[in-house]
Design a binder for these strands. Structure first.
Length: 804
DNA sequence: GCCGTAGGACTACCA
DNA sequence: ACTGGTAGTCCTACGGCG
């Protein structure tokens, strides 16, 4: 023992990443940890899963064998009895250990009993078992490269160093072919170094000129090694740059390495998202992150390109380079400009990384998911991971993933959602908007909504005071806090504390950035729990739970509306968690709000969102006669003069800029100046501009996302015909591409006339008048008593008119 | 064969 | 590949008309 203790060292380091390897029949978790240096350490850990069988079955289970892919024999290593909590009850299970992770499915397939926890990626299983937190500090005993014991985990915030890179490729046939077409240029930006590597003469001082493609790849290896970043950032690098570089390194026999410990660049598929994993360095492809942030509404770019996202997020002006002409520039031998553009792309990638990585890092440590996987995760996966982590902590059985049949069943029975009140179209003054802070999370916490607290069995019927009964008649026990409400409560409480702390911190500090990122991460996670309960592929799916959440939501909003009306307010509109009132006196609103709050559970709260001096609601398009109001479509003017506009065409990317800009101007003229004459003039001017034929094509472009393979569409539509025209020129159009098109003059149907912006030559005046401008503005003007005809005629003649 | 319209496919929004 | 509620566009099939 004492001999050993001389080689045992107690250490601490930040936990960056976990993987596993099998050596000599033993399974080792590989941990990448950052102390003074960043190293890879090993720790032995046996994979296992659970079997719902009796102790007497153990000998039979241990006698099972299976055949591995390599032909060798796989058999269980050992077994023990354990107990797990299932809901409010306990259950005895056999914990069956295997030699290596890939043995788990092999052995499991030989077992007739129900099994559990057999489908959990092994490195993450380890994080749960050891209750680690990514990016926090682990304290451990180490002997050489092996960790003997993990002692504790403490909070921490590593400073992660970033480096971005971008490659340019030779592409004479349009899409570069990684087998044949060389990479011609690589740019990189780190914290201490930046530059471009290429192999043709260039006069720029930031460019390192080498002799061949092979030398360029090796120079990149050197540059990365020198900078030694923790994170390597790219944009769409999992699908393009890294596979390309990997192939070029192979073709040129280059001594190429981007990782820290080994040369491997591995494809890792996570759900639908493709990732590329490096050894010991965290490769972060910003593209899936951008998609994730767009999905949850954190960013809102016109398209997913690096340019467009940079413009939206960093407010940096576009410097567009035509990617399909890179080969021409290369052949021209005048590559100065190409070098500049390439460096700009790396610059933008790094800047975006500085914005996004902090939030990803906080998501990682809050959701207990290693950073690399976090960057490739959906919110459902993050929630699931966090629940699995906490289930392990509570010794609760982790539910299995549903099978295909269960998934389809769940999909066929959707859950009733929120309530939306029909607004009366019109222009209103003095509106107050109140909303429930975190409605669904607060309902889940307040009523202890959890698959485990749900009293389904009449046998565990309790008395009325022992459970909450939802409007859908589900009963949730008050006896014990459920896993879901527990985790959610923790997230909400933590966010509250962080928000308080943020008020005391200087905005320019790193601490502020970190705390605000953490607050963001907590919000993203908390808001995903309800969706997760109703998500068909969820381990914790529960129809009664999800139904109860929305039912309680509808109940509370209905009660609030009723209470407001009883207090003498006119309620104009309500959607899910908000109510729009007309008030005479602000104090009345505050009094009403306090009154509502007095009648709510502790964790629920109605907040004042704001006072709005003026607002517009419009009618639905095709109910002109009865003038039914349109839901989810309104424009408000705040007291600070800022507008809050929802649902109008001007917030949608599938409308032309001409229509959207005019609609905005019209709304502002009405909201800010109360001038319908000005609004009418704006419209007439735009009509004239359109008729002149001189509107730039970019302002006429309509952007639409292609959501499936082009061949997979059942119908012909403008976006698909435009996409096909674009694809015919050799440009890649895949699932997820956002295509911009203009309706041109030639063609019969609108779809025929649709031409990709890049190829557009002219535009169809009538289409833009009748199908873009007029629909966008007339709904608003109608509220002011105008009709379409008078405006259009007014646009033709410069004078008119008695009407105005 | 032309016209008008109901219904379906599809997208993007709000919460 | 987190949920449901909603407006709106464009295309297509279908029925009436002649």
């Amino acid at each position: 023992m004492s001999a050993n203790s001389q080689t045992l060292k107690v250490k601490k380091a930040y936990f960056l990443d976990a993987g596993y390897t099998v050596k000599g029949g033993k399974t080792y978790i590989t941990l990448v940890v950052k102390g003074k240096k960043t190293v890879r350490l090993y720790i032995q850990h046996d994979p296992y899963f659970l079997v719902d069988a009796a102790e007497s079955d153990i000998p039979n289970l241990l006698a099972l064998t299976g055949i591995r892919k390599d032909g060798s024999i796989s058999k269980p290593k050992r077994a023990e009895m354990i107990e797990k909590k299932v809901g409010l009850k306990k259950k005895s299970l056999i914990k069956l250990y295997c030699e290596q992770p890939s043995d788990v499915p092999i052995i499991k397939s030989k077992i007739g009993f129900t099994c559990f926890e057999y489908n959990i990626p092994f490195a993450r299983r380890f994080v749960f078992d050891m209750q680690l937190t990514p990016l926090h500090v682990i304290h451990y005993e180490r002997e050489g490269r092996e960790i003997k014991k993990i002692l504790s985990v403490t909070t921490g915030d590593p400073t992660l160093s970033l480096m971005s890179f971008d490659i340019e490729t030779y592409n004479p046939t349009g899409i570069p072919n990684e087998e044949k077409d060389p990479a011609v240029m690589i740019s990189y930006v780190g914290e201490n170094s930046k530059g471009v590597i290429t192999y043709k003469p260039c006069s720029k001082d930031f460019v390192q000129v080498v002799k061949t493609e092979k030398e360029m790849l090796e120079a990149l290896t050197t540059a990365i090694k020198k900078e030694n970043p923790d994170l390597l950032l790219g944009y769409n690098s999992s699908n393009f740059d890294l596979p390309y570089l990997k192939m070029r390194a192979q073709k040129t026999n280059a001594n190429f390495n981007m990782g820290r410990f080994g040369k491997s660049i591995k494809f890792v598929n996570k759900g639908n998202i493709k990732g590329m994993r490096l050894d010991g360095r965290i490769h972060v492809d910003l593209f899936p992150i951008v998609k994730f942030f767009s999905f949850i509404g954190l960013i809102k770019a016109q398209s997913m390109s690096l340019d467009s996202v940079s413009e939206d997020v960093l407010k940096r002006k576009k410097v567009k380079m035509k990617k399909d002409e890179i080969w021409k520039i290369w052949d021209s031998n005048d590559i100065d400009l190409l070098c500049e553009y390439s460096l700009i792309d790396s610059d933008l990638t790094l800047e975006l990384g500085k914005r996004f990585v902090p939030i990803q890092a906080e998501l990682s440590s809050v959701a207990k998911m290693p950073l690399y996987e976090t960057t490739l995760s959906t919110s459902g996966q993050l929630v699931e991971n966090l629940l699995m982590y906490n289930a392990s902590d509570w010794n609760q059985l982790i539910p299995s993933k549903p099978g295909g049949d269960t998934i389809s069943e769940r999909l066929e029975a959707p859950i009733q959602g929120a309530f939306v009140k029909l607004p009366e179209p019109g222009i209103y003054e003095n509106m107050a908007v109140l909303d429930f802070r975190g409605l669904y999370p607060s309902i889940i916490i307040s009523y202890n909504i959890d698959p485990g607290t749900l009293l389904s069995d009449p046998a565990d019927a309790s008395t009325e005071s022992e459970y909450f009964k939802s409007p859908t008649d589900a009963k949730f026990s008050k006896k014990e806090k459920g896993l879901v409400p527990h985790v959610l409560d923790y997230l909400v409480e933590m966010r509250g504390k962080i928000k308080d702390e943020l008020k005391t911190v200087d905005k320019s500090t790193d601490l502020y950035t970190r705390l605000s990122a953490r607050s963001h991460a907590l919000k993203i996670l908390a808001n995903s729990f309800y969706g997760y309960l109703g998500y068909a592929r969820s381990r914790w799916y529960s129809r009664p739970c999800a139904e109860s959440v929305t039912a309680w939501g509808r109940m509370h909003i209905a009660e609030t509306i009723a209470r407001a009306e009883a207090s003498g307010f006119q309620v104009l509109y309500a959607d899910t968690d908000s109510v729009f009132l007309i008030y005479k006196n602000k104090d009345d609103v505050i009094k009403f709000m306090n009154d509502v709050n007095d009648h709510l559970p502790d964790k629920m709260e109605l907040e004042l969102e704001g006072f709005y001096p003026r607002g517009v609601f419009v009618s639905k398009k095709n109910s002109d006669d009865d003038g039914t109001g349109a839901k989810k479509k309104y424009a408000l003017l705040g007291e600070d003069g800022r507008t809050k506009i929802r649902g109008f065409e001007l917030v949608r990317r599938d409308w032309s800029a001409v229509a959207k800009e005019t609609q905005l101007k019209v709304l502002e003229a009405i909201l800010k100046e109360g001038s319908k004459e000005k609004a009418a003039k704006i419209i007439k001017d735009t009509i004239n501009e359109l008729r002149s034929g001189k509107v730039p094509l970019e302002r006429l472009a309509i952007s639409t996302q292609i959501t499936k393979d082009l061949a997979g569409y059942d119908i012909i539509s403008p976006e698909t015909t435009a996409a096909k025209k674009l694809a015919a020129t050799g440009t890649v159009v895949t699932k997820g591409t956002i295509i911009s098109y203009v309706i041109g003059k030639s063609g019969k149907t609108i779809s025929d006339k649709a031409v990709p912006l890049e190829m557009a030559k002219d535009y169809d005046v009538d289409y833009y008048l009748d199908n873009q401008l007029m629909p966008a503005v007339m709904k608003i003007m109608k509220e002011l008593g105008y009709d379409e005809y008078s405006l259009k005629v007014g646009g033709k003649q410069q004078s008119l008119d008695s009407f105005f």
